[in-house]
Design a protein around this nucleic acid. Sequence first.
DNA 1: CTGTTAGCGCGTTCAC
DNA 2: GTGAACGCGCTAACAG
Lengths: 340, 340
Amino acid sequence: MRDNKPEDLTMADIARMAGVSESTVSRALAGSELVAEKTRKRITELASAAEYTVNEGARSLRLKKTKTIEVVIPIEHHHRQHISDPFFLDMLGALADAIADRDHDMLLSKIPPWATDKRSNALVSGRADGVIIIGQGRRRDQLRDFTNAHRRVVVWGAHIDNEDYTIVGSDNRDGGRLAAAHLLSLGRKRIAFLGDVSLPEIKLRHAGYLDALQQAGVTADEGLTFNAPFDSEEAFAAAKILLDKKLDFDAIFAASDVIAMSAIAALGNAEMKVPQDVSVVGYDDIVGAAWYSPALTTVSQSIHEGGEALVRSLFARINGEATASVILPPKLIIRQSCGA
Amino acid sequence: MRDNKPEDLTMADIARMAGVSESTVSRALAGSELVAEKTRKRITELASAAEYTVNEGARSLRLKKTKTIEVVIPIEHHHRQHISDPFFLDMLGALADAIADRDHDMLLSKIPPWATDKRSNALVSGRADGVIIIGQGRRRDQLRDFTNAHRRVVVWGAHIDNEDYTIVGSDNRDGGRLAAAHLLSLGRKRIAFLGDVSLPEIKLRHAGYLDALQQAGVTADEGLTFNAPFDSEEAFAAAKILLDKKLDFDAIFAASDVIAMSAIAALGNAEMKVPQDVSVVGYDDIVGAAWYSPALTTVSQSIHEGGEALVRSLFARINGEATASVILPPKLIIRQSCGA
DNA sequence: CTGTTAGCGCGTTCAC
DNA sequence: GTGAACGCGCTAACAG
């Protein structure tokens, strides 16, 4: 049982054991050319035999680099709401890979940097070299203030005019258009929209949906847009309203796969068949979408590339380079839930 | 645009601005009683006006405490395999809450501490005060070595004899028993098992399943156990084998909800109805289980309590206290997929 | 109550 | 090639 700091070795200990100075140990371990091949080898072997590891904290302080990136998934947790959308997990996996590739650590937080109720933000307090924020949330003013004040930040979300921070995300409007156009091409005309339009990304998906309707010469029925904020449970409830009110609809475009799945469950309970009675298209192409029954037709955000792009942009900013926003092309993945 | 370290304020700056010594600033900001109410107020106001934040890195070095916990979700990434099971997301959410409650940060890693190919482990290199490892994986010897060498570690997983590290997890054997017994009580006798028995937790769930069969006087058919390692895709394939081989079965006990969902999808493709033709029970009670169609009958692991228990145990160990393993009682959640 | 002194563990000049 | 000295930013012991 180690981990009792007193027992932990320091560079000075290794120096003493090797009969050299701390500087030499430091250089040797860093693989510096300035140290004789022989002594370097001796020291590295000694160090690994002693299971010595450099203290990254001290190293960070000296170098002014923490080699860690903070990832924020800002969940408004009124009621300790959980990160329940698998989209986040996919994104986290992509970010973890991209960050590890660059030999950095990943600090995960659910609290947005501006909600400084407890400890201050990691970037600000020097625990991280940069921050990736997933989603623009509902407090766009605060996000703007934060991105204005700090340069080592990138955001995943919708591309909004007038925002000058670096945003990485897919073309949500085009995604919405793709989804709705596909449903229209299948002869569906009464397409319900389920999603929280107060979120920028969803708003754009909805705009794309309206674009497609207009392009097809179909008049949009506002009564078919359900823009209450919701998760699985509320999506389920929204679908029930569609049914209970006996609203006339033949398709659903859900702003996320999770919403789509919940809606399908609600339809199933009401003995309505997907896709026979109602076509459904989701958004995100989360891992489970392909294995749902019916397999979900959805708009893919290429999350893995998104994660890589976020990290690439952030490192560019850390290095002082200028960065432009990145718009990834969405892709319609046709499976069974749409009926074609 | 700040974040350019040269511009960043240090405690010495604040001291100079306030006309006091660094120590006084340090004490004031720490809310020490040793400093006069008036000066403390003056300093804190000055600091916040200047947007000064204590450098946590330096603080950690001095205090020998990082106030961060590493969470490892060891994914064997032969092919960059992703963390695709929502179970991890639920667990992550629970851990994030529990860790934030204790005013610590959470470092997330996909690489097990013993796979020291790149940077050394966070605990070892002084970037974290403790480690939580999710799952025992397939390399139990290496896990054992690691837990033997370090005391500030807790593991989520199965309770195995002969292991003396602190394990938090649900009673997997009892969970397996609950699931199988329920299926048996519904008159199902040919129950297929889908899951990777080489993993300790799954192995126990399988043992519980066998227990229940025996208790009911039903002979187990080994041909109905599919123990290949698998995810969504492979679960789907396994279910297809059940069907293609025209094996005689009337129920499926899946070792996870994700597996259950995939199996249901495969059954659906073959026009077999759940639960009419085949009863299905899953494991985990992930968030999506309730909104699946049919709603999934499953064994709940009470993940939120599990996360809290992990963190509580870890902090106890960090404080030098002895800790015992924690066994959480599983709970059968009856929904629709089982047929009762 | 406050200031001075002394490190925490490391990397990096600047000498030799 | 190597060592001595210094400081990254902070807190804690010791004086006063």
